[in-house]
Structure formats: C-alpha cells, structure tokens
Amino acid sequence: MAEAETLNAPEVGGAVQRTFGEPVLTLENIGLGFGGVKAIDGVSFEVRRGEIMAIIGPNGAGKSSMLNCINGFYKPQVGTITFKGRTMPAMDPHFAASNGIARTFQNIALFRGMSTLDNLMTGRVLKMKRGFFWQALHWGPAQKEELENRAYVEHVIDFLEIQAIRRTPVGRLPYGLQKRVELGRALAMEPEILLLDEPMAGMNVEEKQDMSRFILEVNEEFGTTIVLIEHDMGVVMDISDHVVVLDYGRKIADGTPDEVRANQQVIDAYLGVSHD
C-alpha cells in the first residue's frame, strides 16, 4: 500500500511535498475585535507563492474574519500585513483588488440581476480603462477593449464548463452552479491570490469533486496561489499543501496536512477534550 502511494505520488497534489517560492503575503500578529469579542488574537502566518493553503478550525474560530482582513474588508486593530513589498496596518480593498487578490464568499455574493457573462465581465472592471466618451459610443477603442476582455472571460467560461448558462441571470441558477460562477468571477480578475470561503459548502460529492478539480487546475494552469476555508477535512487534506488551524481566534497549528493531522491540540479542538 505504502509503495503504491509513492508510485502515484506526482498526481496526488497534497501527498507530495511540493516546493514553493517566496512568501507573497505575510500576516504578522493580526488582532481583530468586535466590541468585547476577540475574533482574531495575535495570528501570524505566511502564504507562499503557488501553494494551496487551507485555513481550518471549528465554527467561530475566526476563519472568515481572517479572509476579510486579507482583502481589506475588515481592518485589524493590531498587526501588519505585508503584500507586494508594502507593509500595512490594514489592507485597502481597492489596493487588494487591483493587485490581484480575488475572493469568493461563504454566502454567494453574485450580482443576481445580471447574466453569468455579465458577472464575469464585471470581474474585469479593473482591466478596462476606456472612459465615458468611448463607452457612450460603444465603438472604436471601447469596443476593442470589450472584445479583448470578452475573449478572456470566454476562456474562463470554457475552463469552468459553464458555456450553457452564459446568458442566464444568475439568480435563476441552482446553488452549485452559482458557486461555480462566483469562482469564475474571481478568476476573471486574473488573481495572483485567490481567497475561497467555503467553496464546497452545501455541495454533493460530484459537485465537490468538480470544485476540487477546478481548484487544483487553477493552481496548476494559472499558477494562482490559493487560500481556502473548508470544513470537509477529506478535501482539505487531499488538496492543500499547507494548513493553518485556528481555534477561538488563535493559531494552534501550522504545517503540512500530515503534521496538522498528527497535532494533539488540533485533535483536541475538533473532538473536544475533557478538562479534569
């Protein structure tokens, strides 16, 4: 059995130790509180270029708050974030978006009144520069720009296999497809770092397999660094290179899936431990 695993190793993403470049994002001693509640308490970690990183932890551990700090939606009160050679007390949402941080949401945050195509095209807003005058004419440079971005969006549509729902308003799509469109919108931004907040929540096994495949392929094909939050441990351990475990806002483990799996504190956090 052990031999078979080593033979198959190159195909099984998480099982092999892949090597990664320099850290692209460094979080140092992040602290965030809402009134008296400490959501995050002195958490530090690094995200290395090209890795798939998972943040796990029990409910209310501060995982989503962590993502919100990374893309500037929440401003941590303590600590620094280093990204693109800039060390900041907090990220600015516009800076994050224009420097290649894209994300999806736990509760789908699509533009419900717009079609799949328009949702993805909206992801390319920052790539489009033509001003009001050309937009009003929808001709010349504005049209050229529109078509170039359309070509890229079509590439993403092909990749995610959502050609058939191109013109459907996303409000009418089933849940699994909406999750996929949301991933598409993030991919349309050509992100360097992709933040996925529970990309597989509420999905059945086939949908989870599809989503895992997309995540691995994005990582491989586009070289995108991925930070994801997920509750399905099977998926997390299979696809991620690096796992950070949070509990009550504190970091209790940080390492490869195997290291984390063996960590006693993690087992205690998940299974509960008797205090005697």
């Binding site: 894209a102 994300r103 533009f111 009144g113 909206t122 807003v125 920052l126 929808h138 529109e146 931004m189």
Partner: peptide, 24 residues
C-alpha cells in the same frame, strides 16, 4: 451594456462584492 453599466448594476445587486472586485 459596457463597463460603466456593469459597475452600476454591480453596486445595485451586491455593493460589498462590487467593492471587493475593485469598483469604487
């Protein structure tokens, strides 16, 4: 049907997501 219209509709449908995409 162009960029400007899409930013308007994005703000209408989900302003938080729009902001995180980089729409001001």
């Amino acid at each position: 049907r162009g960029r400007i219209g899409r930013t308007w509709m994005a703000i209408r449908d989900m302003d938080i997501a729009a902001e995180l995409i980089g729409i001001k």
